[in-house]
């Protein structure tokens, strides 16, 4: 088959079609079950983290190595020429002449799009400020597929910071291809941005706001928890708000058997550690899936043909 992602920049989840998303999920599953093939042999991949990251950088770098590629790069922009005042345009111009692909994270929104326009090699966005983080969405999709056996027609509740959370926005965008029902549970000041609600309405996607976690727990297939950031509230307000959006094991007694709890991690207080032992907890598998989803993405971007997809 023709691989539609070959040499494509992966900047925003909105650049990927439903078929692209399904392809990545399918290949991630193949890699998880049978291990990856050396699709990056003889490739040098630049891993450019202009701001620090734990999971994203380590799982991307693991994926590159498991696919047989070698890495150059940096894990913190403070020791690079950016510190000396070099523009991102110039940095990317230079890096793209060294490497076969660039994985980048940058604190400013739009940086990955700009880089993709300057670079002569594919750019994969590992997070651009508060904007996009497509590989997180891909691992979320793969995790949802893995635990539910399908992406179509699922009920998903998003809990916590729905205003600033880029993982929520991207996952809502991606899942919108699959006839979902969304439930949003958030303090008033952290509701989904209004332009997002409008685009869901235009697309005819079913969604509603709920006041509490309990009614969502007994209804949904996926409970997607996010962190409410302390710095957005004064301390008393935070205590009050945080207590309404904390999940513990007792609350899961009414959950459907297939219901799984996801979280992009790191969690702070919003999921009590006693949830870890329940059959509903799935966030550590989700984090592990980051490697498979990123392996799949890298293989598809860097290799014109991917043999696993022929006998999938």
């Amino acid at each position: 088959m023709i691989n539609p992602l070959y040499r494509k920049d992966i900047v925003s989840i909105s650049d990927l079609s439903k078929e692209n998303l399904e392809l990545i999920v399918q290949l991630a599953q193949q890699f998880k079950q049978h291990g990856p093939s050396p699709y990056l042999q003889n490739n040098v991949i630049a891993s450019c983290f202009f701001e620090p990251s734990t999971r994203t950088r380590l799982s991307f770098e693991t994926a590159v190595q498991r696919l047989g590629g070698t890495l150059i790069g940096f894990s913190d922009g403070t020791n690079t020429s950016t510190k000396k005042g070099e523009t991102l345009t110039d940095s990317i111009h230079m890096i793209s002449s060294y490497a076969d692909a660039i994985i980048m994270r940058h604190p400013q929104e739009g940086s990955a799009r700009l880089a993709s326009e300057v670079s002569t090699v594919p750019v994969i966005n590992g997070g651009d400020g508060a904007n996009q983080h497509p590989s997180q969405t891909l691992l979320d999709l793969f995790s949802i597929y893995e635990c539910q056996g399908d992406l179509e027609g699922l009920s998903i509740a998003f809990v916590g910071d729905l205003k600033y959370g880029r993982t929520v926005h991207s996952l809502v965008q991606a899942m919108s291809h699959f006839n979902p029902t969304f439930y949003f549970i958030a303090p008033d000041i952290l509701r989904m941005p209004s332009y997002f609600e409008e685009s869901l309405e235009e697309a005819g996607i079913k969604f509603e706001y709920l006041d509490a976690l309990a009614p969502a727990i007994e209804t949904v297939d996926i409970l997607y928890m996010t962190r409410v950031q302390k710095e957005r509230f004064d301390p008393t307000e935070y205590m009050h708000i945080a207590s309404q959006y904390v999940l513990n094991a007792d609350m899961l007694s009414t959950a459907k058997p297939n219901m799984k709890v996801l979280h992009p991690l790191p969690r702070v207080d919003e999921i009590h550690p006693d949830v870890d032992r329940t059959a509903n907890a799935y966030y550590f598998q989700q984090a592990e899936n980051g490697v498979y989803a990123r392996e799949a993405l890298l293989a598809l971007v860097m290799s014109e043909t991917v043999k696993e997809l022929h006998h999938a």
Binding site: T87, L88, T89, H106, Q108, E109, G110, L114, D128, G129
Partner: peptide, 14 residues
Amino acid sequence: DCPNSNCISNKEPS
């Protein structure tokens, strides 16, 4: 200019 002060387009030559 982009009204988002953290948008890269406000800081780069393009």
